[in-house]
Every structure is written in structure tokens, then in C-alpha cells.
Design a protein around this nucleic acid. Structure first.
Lengths: 319, 319
DNA sequence: GCGCAGCCATAAGCCATGCTTGGGCCATGA
DNA sequence: TCATGGCCCAAGCATGGCTTATGGCTGCGC
């Protein structure tokens, strides 16, 4: 694969686009001197450029006469394309500048359900208030979300991790978005629901409903520290389903507060217990993308104190 | 008028078109190294160019990761225009090269009637045989033809001149196309028609029909040298009309051989006399245009020995 | 698990591009 | 006839930009 390209930039017969633009400026100005003034250069500089351009064109592009220059047929042909090049160059500069200034751009964000419900909406609201960045959302649990980042299908993935399992794989980069304490969820009728000094071990004989693999592993690990192995009867990621099961008295569960902020069943009680720890929240992305303004803005919006559940502060009726 | 242009090439936020093309090559190749190989450069050269491009863009255009690079949104936006720029650059190069290689182009030629009838057709035939140059013809007597060159309405003017009046004005350039001897035109019934040693003064008592101003002036000047003033009864540029008048015995005349090659009335005799001289034929043009290939080719075709009247050498029956 | 290969970034050096100043020629117009 | 304005040329110099050399990082294969 050492083939030489058909017409590379070093092709002697290829025209230098910058010199075409100089030709254009001169043609518009009517003379090399006027063109040079418009470009902020001296006249010999422009003259040399155009001589070089004509040398590579192997034909005169303009006729010099007292009072200025006029285009030859070849010069007119070149100018047509120079105009188009100038237009595209201008468009490219404007579009890129707009992306750089946060006036445009879209970021694809993958997030797990509770984050999507609680963390993301206020962040998007802030983002929309201060920029023209658009965000496309994809719901995905951390493993899939990470894979979407790796494949380039999304730019940022909201993930979580526990002490024993990192939230951001080593081949990606990420920023921490704080911790999300895990609480115990009990039926309101559960004897331990009102217990003053509740410990995790107090629930060693209960049936449990667990979530994703890592959540269950975390639960099991915490329980092991407390000296028991939880009986996991049911498995579901869905925090609504979990609470429905708990409310019916079918099991107890451990849910992060974010999930509880997204949805809270009236017939469950939540208790903070020692030894259940917290999950850490992360925004994972490929190295380098954090320098993209739109991504950086989204990360910044996510990092703001989004605590406060789903309450949206808006103009309107106060509390 | 020392105003700075709104967005000149030295605008720091403007993107360098050459660097956009480098970005394009890298994006197509998949990595800076491969792009550098395709461009015939080393990897650091490309890397530095793209860093400079991103600096002027004020946002990353591509993400570096092991195995190569991928475009960011801004990079994709830039590439779209880079593709267009590359296409226009290629089109400009091809069109200009075609004009330089005589594969295309049009030259506008003004000529006086007898040249248009005798000199031009064989020249155009030769030109068409060896190039794709097209010629647009305009009939104009030398004064108007010169004016058309000055105004830029034509590229080349075929003109003639006499010893006392140049064929090419000093503000234009031109090439000589040879001389065109002026002969006397007599009715075949004229007593001098068969005279052995005919001199111009022998026609001092005849009525004359003269052509354009300079032709008449030339005739008058020649006659003055011979010691008489011709009686100019009629005036017309048209060499057919002149010969019609002569054939009827209404006058004698002086006509260039080119005009006689274009049309020869059967009832007139032509005689070469001392002291009538010749007119010189020229191709006049603005300084510099002779370097335009199409113009140069036309001038070359005109300069060939076009003598031989209107006879065209073609494949077919020989003499 | 470890070395290797590929890729990109950086540093230093050097050459050439390309800009500037100064001067000259030419054509135009007062 | 001179003054003006345009383009070209020559010479000098600075900067841009390419090269070589090196290092860090990642991912893959043994």
C-alpha cells in the first residue's frame, strides 16, 4: 500500500488553493496593488504568488496592463472555482466556529434508567439554557453503555460502579459525578421498618430482590461482610418492579437513592443502614472527547449539583 | 480606503484550505501516519499541520486513539467542505490544464473582409486540426478592429498598414503576417492593360475608385511621388464593387492582391506597377495575450504561408 | 504476562518558502 | 513634461514548515 495518490498536493500541475484565493482577491480588486492592500500585504508578495500560480497553471491567468489586470479565459475559469472554494471555506469556518462556541452540535448520551430520570433532565435543561447543544439520549445499563462508547455509537455514557467494580473501564476516561448511597427498601409492614438501629444483618433471613449483576454482587459482598448470604428470590433491574414486589411483602431490596428519587412506592419504607455503602456515578467517554466543547458542556452540566431529585425549578408557582 | 476586509486570509479564525485537504487525506487514510504516507510526507509534518488547524478551529477536529484517528462532529463538518474544495480544486486544475494544452478555449478575432475571405479560413482549418481552440470571427476594418482589441471585445485584430501609417498602434502589440502588394486594376479594354512597361503616372488622367481612408491616402501619396494627383471619383471599401466599377470602364483602381484573391472579376486586368508598394498585414493584440496558448496557436496558424489564395488542400482528388 | 508493533506527540535543527524594502520601467493623464 | 500609479526585479531576512530522533501510550500476539 505504498501507492502514490493520483493527484496529491505535491502534484506540480495542481493549483494551490490559497493562491487561487489570492487571484480571486486581485480579480475583485481590479489590480494586484489593490488586491495586496485588501489582503494586508505588499504588492510584490501578491505578484510573486500569482507568478507562481501561473507557473503551475502553465498558462497566463491574467493580463497586466497599466491600470491593473484583467483575467484571461483560464483566469476566469479558475475564478469560478475559487469563488466556490472561498464559499466552502467560509462555510466550514462558520460551522466549526459555531460548534466551538457551543452554538450547535449534538452529543449522544447513554444512561441507565434512574440517571435518565433524575440526573439527566435538569442537566439538559441547564445545557439548553446556555448553549445550542443538542443531546440524543439512549437508555443502556452500564455494560452496554460502555460498549456503545467503545463502538462510537454514543459520546458519553453515564455509568455507576461499586467499590469492587470500577464504574469506568481502564480503556476509557471519565469524570466522577458523586456517590449514590444505597438504602434498604422494606415493606412498611416489615418488623424492621421502624427499628431504631437497623443493621444489614438484621435482614439475613429475608427474601431479597436484586437488580443487575453488579448490584447483586455488591449486595452479596456487603452481606458477606456482615456474615450472611442473602436469599435472592427475584431479579429485575426495574426499580418500579422492585418496589412493587417489596410493597406486596414478597421481598426486601437495596436500591440507590437516585432510583428512589425517580420513583417511590407509597407502601415501602427506606432505611439507611451501615455496610451497604454507595455506588459511584460516572460519565465515561473516550479519551480526548472531553475537549470537544459540546461534550465538555454536557459533562459540566452533569457535574453540577443535580441533587434534589426530580424537582425542577421553574418560573411559576412557588412552593 | 484603508479598510481591512471583513474576513481576509489572515483572519486567525479562518481555516487554511491546504490544511483542510490534509485533514481530508488523513480522514480517508484512517490515521495520520497513513495520511502522511499518502501525501508523501512524514508523520510529524501531518501532526503539526492538524494541530495548527485545530488551534485555528478552536475545537478538536479528530480524536486520537491507538490505531488511528476518528473525526469529531466539527471534523465531519469540515470534511464535507474539504471534499467540495478538493473537487473544485481538481476541476480548476483540469480546466486550466485543458486551456493550457490547447484542448479548449476560444479566441475572438476581428478581421477585414479580404483577410476574412483569404487568410482566415485556412488558418482556422489548421488550428482546428491541431487543437480544440474555437475562434469567433468579427468583421471589422482596421480602425474598428483596433478599437475592439482595446476594449477587450476581441483578442486579436487582423489589420493592415502602409509605409506612412503603421498597421499596429503603439499601445498594442502585433506580429507581422507579411506584405500584400497593391496592384493596379484596369478594365480589360483599357489602353494600358497590355502596355509593357506600365507606370503609375500613366494613369494620371484616369478616374479612380478608392477604398478606405488610409488606402486612398496611400494612393494619393504614391501618386504624389509620381507627380500627379489622382481624380478619385468613387469611394468604396468593397473589392467586389470596386471591380464591378472597373469592369464597366468607370474607373481604375488599386487593390491588394489578397482582395483580388478573394474575388476576381473576369473583365478586369491587374498589373503590377512600380511605386504602388504594398500594405503590410498584422495581427494586433494587447501586450501579453500572445502568451495565452490559444492566442499563440491562432497567431501561429495565421503566420504560416497562407499564400495560395482560397485553394484548400484536402484529402481527395489531387491536382 | 510480557514484549512488540503501530500510532501520535514533542523537541531540535535546518532549509526553503515567502514576505519585505528599494529601485526601475512603462503607460496614463494633467 | 512631469507626476502618478501599476507591475516586475533583485536582494535580504524571518518565519513557516519539514525532517530526524525520541518518548509515551495502546492493543495484540506469543
Amino acid at each position: 500500500m505504498t501507492s502514490i495518490p493520483a493527484t496529491g498536493p505535491d502534484d506540480p500541475s495542481a493549483l494551490d488553493p490559497r493562491r487561487l484565493l489570492i487571484l480571486r482577491a486581485v480579480a475583485q480588486a481590479g489590480s494586484m496593488s489593490a488586491g495586496a492592500r485588501a489582503l494586508g500585504w505588499t504588492q510584490p508578495a501578491v505578484s510573486q504568488h500569482l507568478q507562481a500560480l501561473e507557473r503551475s497553471a502553465r498558462t497566463p491567468l491574467l493580463l497586466r496592463h497599466s491600470g491593473g489586470v484583467t483575467l484571461t479565459e483560464a483566469g476566469r475559469a479558475a475564478i469560478v472555482h475559487a469563488d466556490a472554494i472561498a464559499a466552502h471555506l467560509d462555510a466550514a469556518s462558520r460551522e466549526v466556529a459555531e460548534l466551538a462556541a457551543l452554538g450547535a452540535g449534538t452529543v449522544r448520551l447513554a444512561a441507565f434508567p434512574s440517571a435518565l430520570a433524575v440526573l439527566v433532565p435538569p442537566a439538559l435543561e441547564r445545557l439548553a439554557a446556555t448553549s445550542g447543544v443538542e443531546v440524543r439520549l439512549v437508555e443502556a445499563e452500564p455494560p452496554e453503555a460502555v460498549e456503545l462508547v467503545r463502538s462510537g455509537d454514543v459520546d458519553v455514557a453515564l455509568t455507576f460502579g461499586y467499590a469492587e467494580s470500577p464504574g469506568v473501564p481502564s480503556d476509557l476516561r471519565g469524570v466522577g459525578l458523586g456517590t449514590d448511597p444505597v438504602d434498604v427498601v422494606l415493606p412498611t409492614t416489615h418488623p424492621a421498618a421502624d427499628r431504631g438501629d437497623l443493621r444489614l444483618a438484621d435482614l439475613a433471613d429475608d427474601d431479597w430482590v436484586a437488580g443487575c449483576v453488579r448490584c447483586r454482587e455488591h449486595l452479596v459482598a456487603c452481606a458477606a461482610t456482615e456474615g450472611f448470604t442473602p436469599r435472592v428470590r427475584h431479579e429485575t433491574d426495574d426499580y418500579v418492579v422492585v418496589q412493587q414486589l417489596v410493597a406486596r411483602g414478597l421481598a426486601v431490596a437495596a436500591l440507590p437513592r437516585t432510583a428512589l428519587a425517580a420513583y417511590r412506592h407509597p407502601d415501602v419504607a427506606t432505611r439507611t443502614v451501615e455496610g451497604l455503602g454507595a455506588r459511584s456515578l460516572h460519565a465515561a467517554h473516550r479519551a480526548g472527547v472531553e475537549r470537544v466543547p459540546a461534550v465538555s458542556a454536557l459533562l459540566g452540566a452533569l457535574r453540577r449539583p443535580a441533587r434534589g431529585g426530580t424537582t425542577r425549578t421553574r418560573t411559576g408557582a412557588g412552593a
